[in-house]
Amino acid sequence: MRYAMAIDVKKCVGCSDCVVACQVENNVHHGYCRDWVTETINGTYPQLETEIRSERCNHCDNAPCVRCCPTGASHIADGGIVLVTARKCIGCGACIQSCPYDARYSHPDGHVDKCTFCAHRVEAGQQPACVAVCPTSCMYFGDIDNPYSDISQIMKVRKWKVLAPEAGTRPQIFYLL
């Protein structure tokens, strides 16, 4: 069992519904976010190319945030989901520094916070809030170890990439090209 997410950049319109759905679902404080949208433009007018991406914690197989956490607050839970136990976190920020994706932030309550893949929803058999809400249905979430899951199927037929592969973190967010 290995949870992963694939995001189709051909369909994503960058509307940020994933961001607000996450905020509302997870009660993320105003002014903070666990996921976000980036836009890359290449070329000069009128020869232009764009890529819009919804980004978040990559729930890496080789997670530097977990390795560098001095208290064990950052850990890998069932299905490879990287979580932070707020109660154990001393807010030292080592994980924030170590993350090549800038996916973690200091919660105003003093601990570190980030995307949980909506573990509470996943356990109840639901999709993460961002995936469930997306108007373009551009996100696929599921068990990548299961060859019949939607995510395995789509990744078989589409080209994909990961962000910052050179960091060697074995990220589990895949961008369909």
């Binding site: 509307c15 940020s16 519904d17 961001v19 607000v20 759905a21 509302v24 469930a132 809400v133 997306c134 108007p135 249905s137």
Partner: peptide, 11 residues
């Protein structure tokens, strides 16, 4: 079953 960001943030 999918609202847009304005609908999701409508609260």
């Amino acid at each position: 079953g999918r609202l847009c960001p304005r609908g999701t943030g409508g609260i």
